[in-house]
Amino acid sequence: MWPFFHKLGSPKWFYGIATRLMPWLLVLGLLCLGAGLVWGLAFAPKDYLQGNSYRIIFIHVPSAFLAQSIYIMMASAAVVTLVWRMKLADVFVKATAPVGLVLTFISLFTGAVWGKPTWGTWWIWDARLTSMLILLFLYGGVIALDRAINDEKSAARAVAILVLVGVVNIPIIKYSVDWWNTLHQPATFKLTEKPSMPAEMWVPLLLSVIGLYLLFGWLACLRMQTEILIREQRTRWVQDLFHVNEGVR
């Protein structure tokens, strides 16, 4: 266990693994997302109540799902940063916060556009929508705090604490549709029950969710590589990346 844990914290080891994983993540992600979206847009039957506007679900749910998942992953990484001071955990938080910000924005935007024909309004200050807006501000706050502190170690600690404080928002988002009266419909996927929609609707939705997860994996690897290169550019192993290719010839 310990050698593995130690390896996992090594930026050099991660850099190599990421290089090998990335083509798979990108190709499989694009295939799944493409299949899910084409199926959802053109082939899935229309909703008897909402008509065709419900087709927004195939991007709204995956991006909202990912936006919350990324925050939970960031919070787990923040614990690792605070307890074990593992550099790679901080690299993860820094690299993925902007991805979370973009996905939260997409879910809010598509939700508003979906709300207009369905509820008759772009926005209401209801629990689900407000807690998602807070998530957007949390992502923005994490990015801003990280940029405001020059010292790498202090920034890592401060960001980790902010991420952990903000994690209370996640259960609020999840249970907001059960705790309060809301216009928002309840969860589409539950672990314990069969989906309430027919398979021609939930299979493409699941494909889009998986596809977006894989693309997030690709983005995380890519952006972590960038951050690792910036931090470790003076180390032997980074310079060896180029010597191995050029030095021999």
């Binding site: 979206l37 847009l41 229309k46 008509g51 065709n52 506007s53 087709r55 927004i56 991007i59 709204h60 991006s63 902007p98 991805v99 973009v102 924005f105 997409i106 935007f109 598509t110 556009v113 979906w114 207009k116 024909p117 693309l215 690709w218 983005l219 890519l222 952006r223 960038t226």
Partner: peptide, 27 residues
Amino acid sequence: MEGHGPYVWASYGVFFVLMAVLMVGSY
């Protein structure tokens, strides 16, 4: 989309543009 076209295509447009900017920019 039986009148829902602008809503659906605006959502998908924003999704594709932002994802493309994020992915190409990061790369």
